[in-house]
């Protein structure tokens, strides 16, 4: 922590001082954007906030927002997009500071990234979406469930902690070690090489690692009472062999969240979305379809 914290002060660079803003600074005012919803595979950029958000969008139907894990990018969902875009609108953004999305002047906290996702929904004119989140992406989904439930039709949580104490013993120390090595430039988890390949500004690498370290060593901070206040339907993917998360985390999520159910993949590890693509695709489809059918019944 001591190694990286001083760098955080740099995060304000690039922001306009209040006195210099001649026009209303609206993060909802989008300019210089290219939206071509009909083009199936091309990526797009959303401007207008302190970041440039990269996202891909494919297909028509119920909107499903897939939020990737830490050290990952939207690429992790490609096989899901292929399997689901025939029947759903599959949206796969790169989170703040990840892939082709810039890190901006703000921190890379789960709360801020949840707000980034809401801005993307605003921009795409989507009032409510189904959310699928893996690991960090699941924590962002939890923030959406807590702070923006009116924008969430349902959520699928994969490999998702709700509190920093959910990690297995030694988990935080391991994470700290990983972050130090990443900061030193080691290509752990292929993150550095992926960053160099995709980032719009590879020189931001160390600052982004610093921002992520700050978040990883203090968040998430939800507890069971928070989960009890969640209203939208939730599907918890439970695995028995997650290397980072204690197995009871999945039971906590499912038992405390009022409208939750479990899909169990006993042999699964933390990387379950990559290994059990077919099983998960089927579970996600069935879950979303059951929610859509339920809400249609209520509409009648």
């Amino acid at each position: 922590m001591t190694l990286v914290m001083p760098l955080l002060g740099l995060s304000a660079i690039g922001s306009l001082a209040y006195s210099e803003a001649t026009e209303p600074f609206s993060e909802h005012q989008i300019s210089a954007v290219e939206v071509q919803l009909s083009v199936p595979t091309e990526g797009h950029y959303m401007l207008g906030s302190d970041i440039k958000t990269y996202y891909e969008i494919r297909g028509q139907g119920e909107p499903v927002l897939f939020i990737h894990a830490g050290f990952n990018t939207s690429e992790m969902w490609l096989s899901y997009a292929e399997r689901m875009s025939s029947d759903y609108m599959v949206i796969t953004p790169d989170s703040r500071g990840h892939g082709r999305t810039t890190d901006g002047a703000g921190p890379i906290t789960y709360g801020r990234m949840a707000n980034d996702m809401v801005r993307l929904l605003d921009y795409l004119n989507i009032e409510k979406a189904h959310i699928v989140g893996h690991s960090d992406g699941g924590v962002i989904a939890l923030h959406l469930l807590v702070d923006f439930p009116d924008r969430v039709k349902s959520a699928v949580l994969i490999g998702t902690p709700y509190n920093i104490t959910n990690y297995k013993p030694g988990g935080i120390e391991t994470l700290q070690e990983i972050m130090s090595k990443l900061y030193a430039g080691e290509d752990l988890l292929g993150f550095k090489s992926s960053f160099d390949r995709l980032s719009p500004d590879p020189s931001r690498y160390k600052e982004i690692i610093s921002k992520l370290t700050t978040t990883y060593l203090s968040q998430p901070f939800f507890n069971r009472e928070t989960l009890e206040s969640i209203t939208p339907p939730v599907l918890v993917i439970k695995v028995d062999n997650d290397e980072y998360l204690a197995p009871e985390v999945f039971d906590d999520l499912a038992s405390s969240t009022p409208n939750a159910r479990i899909f169990h993949i006993p042999e699964g590890k933390h990387n379950v979305p990559r290994v059990y693509t077919d099983e998960l695709t089927k579970a996600i489809r069935e879950f979303i379809d059951s929610q859509v059918n339920t809400s249609q019944q209520y509409d009648e």
């Binding site: 922001s15 306009l16 001082a17 209040y18 210099e20 803003a21 001649t22 026009e23 209303p24 600074f25 609206s26 993060e27 909802h28």
Partner: peptide, 10 residues
Amino acid sequence: LLDHLGIQKA
């Protein structure tokens, strides 16, 4: 609110 008022920092 800050966005609406054109205020970057307050």
